[in-house]
């Protein structure tokens, strides 16, 4: 790998995923620079989530290569991707509803007193303190973090999910529709967390259907259509018309006020 390539945190070459005869993702060539925030947009079934599932190890690609942090990687499980430094926040939030906040933030990477394999005793105090610390960065108020997630609001849940990713020393954060289920105020809180990540220089891939949000938050927009990448445009030089015509695949005029697809 030469000097220029080191600035690239994630790169895929010819990444494909076929489900039987369906080409959910076809020949995707993608690059992400270190510190860059990008959005993936596209219609339903365009292959956005499929793409994410390949690079987070949730699914194994049919063909193609993934380079992460300068190395060719071959993730077999989500924990492989996690260990490499890729943290993902999923659309369905992927929280254990019966567990409390610290348990969810530290799920799969619990703090223990000493290592006894699965029977290691948990360091509950350390996890509690660290949870308070990472949650304070998001600016969300959770009165009691020792109650089960199922008692919390959508915004609180989302912030816990994001804190889990942002709280660990991660090299890349991926968010699949982070504000889809949130109210106006909660959306703003989540957007603040994302801006905070930008300041910390952590690269981000975000799937979003909200073009207003996309233009507000990211540097670059990648457009997917029918399993293929149909373009990548700079958020500062493009406009919503261009993005929409790329998403739909036809040139057409769209009103300036249309911010939702």
């Amino acid at each position: 790998m030469n000097e220029i390539d080191k600035k690239i945190i994630l790169k895929t070459e010819g990444l494909s995923k076929h489900y039987g005869g369906v080409k959910a993702l076809d020949n995707a060539d993608f690059t992400l620079k270190n510190g860059e925030h990008i959005a993936i947009v596209g219609d339903n079934g365009a292959g956005k989530s499929t793409f994410i599932r390949q690079i987070t190890g949730v699914e194994i690609p049919t063909s193609g290569k993934i380079f992460f942090d300068g190395n060719l990687v071959n993730f077999k499980t989500p924990s492989d991707a996690k260990n490499a430094g890729i943290e993902a926040v999923y659309q369905n939030l992927a929280l254990a509803d019966d567990l409390d906040v610290p348990s969810n933030i530290f799920l799969g990477q619990e703090e223990t007193y000493f290592n006894l394999g699965p029977f290691s005793f948990l360091n509950a105090k350390k996890m509690y303190d660290k949870s308070i610390e990472v949650l304070s960065k998001t600016g969300i108020k959770i009165p009691d973090i020792n109650i089960a997630m199922s008692n919390m609001s959508g915004g609180q849940r989302q912030c816990v999910a994001i804190s889990r990713s942002a709280g660990f020393a991660s090299k890349l954060i991926i968010m699949d529709e982070p504000t889809a289920a949130l109210g106006v105020q909660e959306t703003e809180q989540v957007e603040n967390i994302i801006k905070n990540l930008k300041d910390r220089g952590i690269p981000l891939i975000m799937i979003s259907h909200n073009l207003r949000q996309v233009f507000d938050l990211v540097d670059k927009i990648w457009v997917f259509r029918q399993g293929k990448i149909v373009g990548s445009v700079d958020a500062t030089t493009t406009n919503s018309n261009e993005v929409v015509s790329l998403i739909t695949g036809i040139q057409q005029k769209v009103g300036e006020e249309a911010s939702f697809i």
């Binding site: 949730v58 999923y90 254990a96 567990l99 699965p118 029977f119 290691s120």
Partner: peptide, 27 residues
């Protein structure tokens, strides 16, 4: 063991949301 160890925590997590436990990296 169920209340204070990783073993217990993972048992509850799998029962609560197996998919979440899987993407969290639990075997």
């Amino acid at each position: 063991l169920m209340r204070y160890t990783k073993y217990g925590k993972h048992t509850y997590a799998i029962g609560s949301n197996e998919e979440a436990a899987r993407v969290a990296g639990i075997n």
